[in-house]
Amino acid sequence: MRSFEMEQKTTRDAFGAAVYDLAKEDPSIIALGADTTNNLGMGPMSQEIPKRVINVGIAEQNMMGIAAGLAASGYRVFAGSFAPFVAMRSLEQFRTFICYPHLNVKVAGGMGGLSASNEGVTHQCPEDFTIMRSIPGNVVVYPADTASCKVIVRELNKHDGPAYIRLGKLPFRKVFDENYHFELGKANLLEEGTDATIFCNGTTVSRSLQAFDVLREEGISVRVMEMPCIKPLDEEAVLNAAEETGAIVTVEEATILGALGGAVAEVLGENHPTIMKRVGLNDCFGESGELEELMDKYGISVESIVSAVKSVIARKR
């Protein structure tokens, strides 16, 4: 089973650095934080171009409105705070004043999923995908590591309209390098296989690849696809996987209700009913603890993925 080294930097650092790189080339880029500018990696940009890093204070709802006003005036805004506060506390502001007018505001949710780890349930947000994908016109992405995060931020900036990008807290495992390819609404094929397909993103990519290795040892051939965009979803990749491998497993550090697994199930249910299994938080809150421990405890372990793959393959026979 392959192993992945832990990164030095976080996806929050990568996000801030990527926004800064964009800002150097484009004067219309502006960054906002709610007492979270340093936390979201905007520190270096703030020191060099302080006029374009605005700290609105601990006021996420106001931040969304300020972001809307700046975007309505022509700015391309990158705003962020912690996932539960942007995906829940200021959700209405994001939905009605940014998404409804389809403004250029990309919102980062740091400490998304379970990654707030020791901060506990108040700061965790495994519900963010489900909530954010329900809003018309919104884009929802989850980078797996720093290299892919930088590429994703750069590509997202080319998209006119709102987006939500989930970030972690501590460093993730390194999966990709600077050659990472991102296309909005497209999955990335990581491993080819014929017996089943795993769709994963973010922190579950490394685990899914490890599950691939375990299954290969046992003679089971699994396709592994990274699905960085929960929305728009690569429906073609889902339907091809259903057609070609006949069994699907979704793996995510999120609730299984209405997130990546839900999105995939919707596509399959309407177009190509296929045996599938959703691996993720099973309608429960997390708790305080280290991220990797929590993922193991809440059913997102390599063993759980292996077991889910075997179960869908068994059911299709």
Binding site: I54, Q61, N62, M64, G65, I66, A67, A68, G69, L70, A71, A72, S73, G74, Y75, Q93, F97
Partner: peptide, 11 residues
């Protein structure tokens, strides 16, 4: 609207 207008004033 007070926040969005403040955003426009900031811009």
């Amino acid at each position: 609207g007070i926040s969005t207008a403040a955003g426009a004033a900031l811009a």
